[in-house]
Design a protein around this nucleic acid. Structure first.
Lengths: 137, 137
DNA sequence: CTGATACTTAAGTGAATGCTTAACTATCAG
DNA sequence: CTGATAGTTAAGCATTCACTTAAGTATCAG
């Protein structure tokens, strides 16, 4: 069970990072309505073509967008898979706390009927503090 | 219909930016299982408490996490709303291209029956190139 | 009061970002 | 061939980021 975390950029890092920029989200919004060329993506944006190309590079590196060049025109389109990965991460977290709320709800409903308190399922375990230092000796 | 885009950081910028960091995602994963103190969040992380507090500040600024201090312990918990906003943005984009695929599917099914070709609904409109320069004269 | 615990805050640093300008390389139209 | 179009690539630069160390400030236990 190796995780990235050290030195290698996890796919989700790149995806969320790419989506964090408003310019790039505008580009993704445009592409979600259908493929577009680079200059088409650039049209509504208040910056040089060069900057747009750099944003595109970020989107491609993240896997959210794919492109191919035909003649002198590069056509870009959305790559659904990476997109879905980001969506899934979010919904999994939500599932996690919603499960917890359900349990809490059940607990409250139970103690409402017969007042015999147990252990609060939403309370953190509160452990002693041990500090770490980074690898650097 | 004013949008952020200029000078002010849109809520989604902050949310996606916050989620782009693996350390912060670990923190969010922990919190999605229930509230936790700062040192509890720091325990599995290979960095100083100080750094964790700074990550927490980013998460709070993004609205993904909320915290309150009782005595000397700060308890952190997930704030579902902002989370949902990010999820919604993603699913709306997906809805957009899925609608397009449906139309394409319908179009193909139609031309399969009676071969009378029209205009490809997935093809970009290809307009002339006009370059902008940033505000700076 | 005294010492640990649980953060807080400030300053500094190297690397990553989001641009710009400038100079270039392929198409494609005539 | 010639000029416009579409994109590419390389510097350079101001900011922001993700840390670190260092020096606090409130609790709380004894």
């Amino acid at each position: 069970m190796l995780n990235y975390q050290v030195a290698a950029p996890a796919p989700l890092d790149l995806a969320f990072q790419a989506l964090a920029d408003p310019t790039r989200r505008v580009m993704v919004e445009r592409l979600s309505q259908g493929p577009a060329s680079v200059s088409e993506l650039a049209r509504p944006l208040d910056m040089t073509l060069s900057a747009v190309v750099q944003h595109l590079a970020v989107l491609e590196a993240s896997g959210l967008v794919r492109s191919q060049k035909i003649g002198r025109v590069r056509t870009c389109r959305i790559e659904p898979q990476t997109f879905t990965a980001a969506e899934r991460w979010l919904s999994e977290r939500r599932a996690s706390w919603e499960r917890r709320f359900d349990r809490l709800g059940a607990f409250l409903a139970e103690t409402e009927a017969e007042t015999g308190a147990d252990d609060d399922p939403a309370t953190p375990s509160a452990a002693p503090g041990v500090r770490r230092r980074r690898k650097k000796t």
